[in-house]
């Protein structure tokens, strides 16, 4: 009795420290990003960040407006979400509720494989296949644009959305489905009116994780979006995202310069966006926990 009590305590302690660790890491990330970025707020000042031009290397005047980068990320993310969410959720519903066990055996490993493809490779695929396809389909002069980028981002978000939503959908108790069927509902009605609502918090979590992956993705967007730092809402325009900017410029920036600090500020904005996303997710989940 005593012994098992002690073991309980120890296990509890281990779990507690693991959980605290994650909080600590988040705080540390914030502190260090803040430390590096803070100098920018003093000189040249925070208002510089709200400019509409990003031109950090210039003999004339350096410009650190992150608005075009922000809108670039936003456009790519919104488009990717529009593509990925319906496809991902429908695929998850299909695999969880409709597919035969044999079909499931085929789909699941493929989706896991898709999740594991390195983003550079997805980028290559984008350059060679998707960009020319988009270019020809819409008669554009170049296929390196927000649309191509977001299609590939969607491709990368879909496996996350599918596998986590599928788990959520499959965990809905059979008793709910039996109740629905016994009232004369069809299988499809049962899926859309009972099973999906009952697993909605899991589906929302899956979507948020998928969007998180999209926001954070760097390599692919760097390869296929054209990287022009302009403010636009056109899917056919070339855009440059915040992540791509950091990745492309961090290596060459003089340590401690304005440019260096500005890149850290972009990092902070990215972090805040992710937090915002999480908060929205929490709220949505709380609202839908009871349908």
């Amino acid at each position: 009795m005593q012994k098992s009590l002690l073991r309980d305590k120890i296990v509890r302690l281990i779990l507690q420290s693991a959980a605290s660790m994650s909080i600590l890491i988040v705080i540390l990330i914030f502190v260090f990003l803040g430390k590096e970025g803070f100098s920018f707020l003093l000189d040249p000042g925070i208002s510089e960040l709200f400019g509409t031009k990003w031109n950090p290397v210039s003999f004339d005047k350096e410009l650190f407006g992150i608005i075009p980068l922000f809108t670039g990320s936003l456009l790519a993310t919104v488009l990717a979400t529009i593509f990925a969410v319906p496809v991902g959720v429908v695929a998850a519903v299909y695999i969880a509720e409709v597919a035969s066990p044999a079909e499931r055996e085929i789909f699941k490993p493929f989706i896991e494989l898709l999740a594991g493809i390195p983003s550079v490779v997805v980028g290559f695929f984008g350059l060679i296949v998707v960009a020319p396809f988009v270019k020809n389909l819409f008669g554009l002069s170049s296929g390196l644009n927000a649309l191509t980028g977001s299609l590939l981002l969607a491709l990368m978000a879909i496996p996350t959305i599918v596998s986590i939503s599928e788990d959520a959908i499959r965990s809905v108790p059979q008793a709910y489905k039996s109740a629905s069927l016994s009232l004369g509902a069809t299988k499809l009605q049962t899926i859309w009116k009972v099973t999906v609502p009952a697993s909605l918090s899991g589906i929302v979590a899956a979507v948020m994780l998928g969007i998180g992956r999209v926001i954070g993705e760097t390599m692919t967007v760097m390869m296929v979006t054209g990287n022009a730092a302009v403010i636009t809402t056109s899917p056919f325009a070339s855009v440059r995202t915040m992540t791509a900017t950091i990745a492309a410029e961090m290596g060459e920036v003089p340590f401690g310069s304005h440019h260096y600090a500005a890149l850290f500020c972009i990092g902070i904005v990215l972090l805040l966006m992710t937090f915002g996303l999480n908060m929205i997710a929490q709220r949505v989940m709380r609202k839908y926990r009871m349908g």
């Binding site: 108790p173 008793a175 709910y176 039996s178 109740a179 016994s182």
Partner: peptide, 21 residues
């Protein structure tokens, strides 16, 4: 059923479910 299985919805929506479908 043997084990009561209301939907995770409001009381009203539980009853209205059948007529709705």
């Amino acid at each position: 059923f043997q084990k009561s299985n209301p939907f995770p919805k409001s009381v009203f929506e539980n009853i209205a479910y059948g007529p709705r479908i």
